[in-house]
Amino acid sequence: MSTRVRIDRQSPEVYSAMTRVVKVVREQATAAGLDRALLELVNMRVSQINGCETCLDTHWRAGTAAGVTPQKLALLPAWRDSELYDDRERAALAIAETVTSTAGPHLDDEQYAAVRKDLTDDETSMLIWASITINSFNRISILSRHPVPVRDADGRAAPEEQS
């Protein structure tokens, strides 16, 4: 028996408030002109950095459903070296990594200005909020040890793993 507290179940009101924040961020991001595919790239990259298997499992499926190619998802750790990512995606990923790796290098003023040339104020704000929220959910899932089902080649959970 696991001694882990599933904080989403232990404190459902707080978890529900967190999911409402994500919903507002998604709505505002869409209103700002950010598409779901870009947000899922951010979710995937942050989850890779944090090593959150639950969120990686969730967001690779959401990313492909939003039109992100499997190749882009596979090469995401090497986005700086790949020509697959456009300027907006690069700007979004730079923001996501800066929000996530607070102990690492930060965007200096010159780097921040370079990122901003491809994003509006609203887009920048919503990408920061999206990065903050996925970081929060990474921590919830990692500390709660949310289980990840074994999936088949089509992404369906194996029958014995479904709950």
Rank of each mutant, 00 (worst) to 15 (best):
Lys23Ala: 15
Cys55Tyr: 05
Arg61Thr: 07
Val68Trp: 00
Ala96Cys: 04
Val148Gly: 01
Phe137Met: 05
Leu34Pro: 00
Arg88Ser: 06
Tyr15Val: 02
Gly104Gln: 10
Glu83Ala: 15
Asp122Trp: 13
Ala130Asn: 00
His106Thr: 09
Met18Asp: 02
Asn138Asp: 04
Tyr112Cys: 10
Ala114Gln: 14
Val115Asp: 00
Ala114Leu: 11
Gly51Gln: 00
Glu161Met: 14
His106Glu: 06
Cys52Thr: 03
Val5Phe: 03
Ala78Leu: 13
Thr102Tyr: 15
Asn50Tyr: 09
Asp108Ala: 04
Leu93Ala: 01
Thr102Ala: 12
Pro147His: 11
Asp121Asn: 13
Ala96Glu: 03
Arg4Ser: 12
Leu38Asn: 01
Ala17Trp: 11
Glu83Phe: 04
Val14Ser: 07
Pro159Ser: 07
Lys72Phe: 01
Pro147Phe: 08
Gln28Ile: 02
Ile142Thr: 05
Gln28Phe: 00
Asp152Ser: 03
Trp79Asn: 04
Pro12His: 08
Val115Ser: 03
Leu93Tyr: 03
Arg4Phe: 13
Glu83Leu: 06
Arg9Ser: 11
Val46Glu: 01
Arg139Val: 02
Met1Thr: 09
Glu161Trp: 10
Thr58Leu: 15
Arg4Ile: 06
Asp8Val: 07
Ile142Phe: 07
Ser125Thr: 14
Trp79Ser: 04
Tyr85Asp: 13
Lys23Leu: 06
Val46Lys: 00
Pro12Glu: 09
Ala37Gly: 11
Val24Gln: 15
Gln28Thr: 05
Val14Gln: 07
Ala114Ile: 02
Glu53Gly: 15
Ile140Thr: 07
Ala113Met: 05
Ala103Ile: 07
Ala78Ser: 13
Thr133Ser: 10
Asn135Cys: 10
Arg4Ala: 15
Ser47Val: 08
Val42Cys: 09
Arg145Thr: 06
Arg80Thr: 10
Ala66Ser: 12
Arg9Met: 08
Tyr112Leu: 15
Glu83Met: 03
Ala31Asn: 12
Pro12Ile: 06
Thr30Tyr: 07
Arg88Tyr: 03
Glu161Arg: 12
Ser163Lys: 11
Trp129Thr: 04
Thr19Glu: 14
Ala66Trp: 09
Ile134Glu: 06
Ile140Asn: 04
Ser163Gln: 12
Glu160Tyr: 06
Leu73Ser: 14
Ser163Tyr: 09
Arg6Thr: 08
Ala37Gln: 05
Asp8Ile: 05
Glu110Lys: 11
Ala114Glu: 15
Ser136Asp: 07
Val22Ala: 12
Asp108Gln: 03
Val25Met: 04
Thr30Leu: 08
Ser2Val: 06
Ala153Arg: 13
Ser136Gln: 10
Ile140Val: 15
Ala91Cys: 02
Arg116Pro: 07
Arg20Val: 07
Arg6Val: 09
Glu53Met: 12
Asp121His: 10
Thr100Pro: 03
Asp121Met: 04
Ser144Gly: 09
Met1Leu: 13
Val46Pro: 01
Ala94Tyr: 01
Arg20Ser: 12
Ala66Met: 12
Met1Phe: 08
Gly67Thr: 12
Trp79Glu: 02
Ile128Met: 12
Ser125Asp: 12
Leu119Glu: 00
Val5Met: 09
Leu75Gln: 14
Gly155Trp: 01
Ser82Phe: 10
Gln28Trp: 01
Gly155Cys: 02
Gly104Trp: 07
Ala74Phe: 11
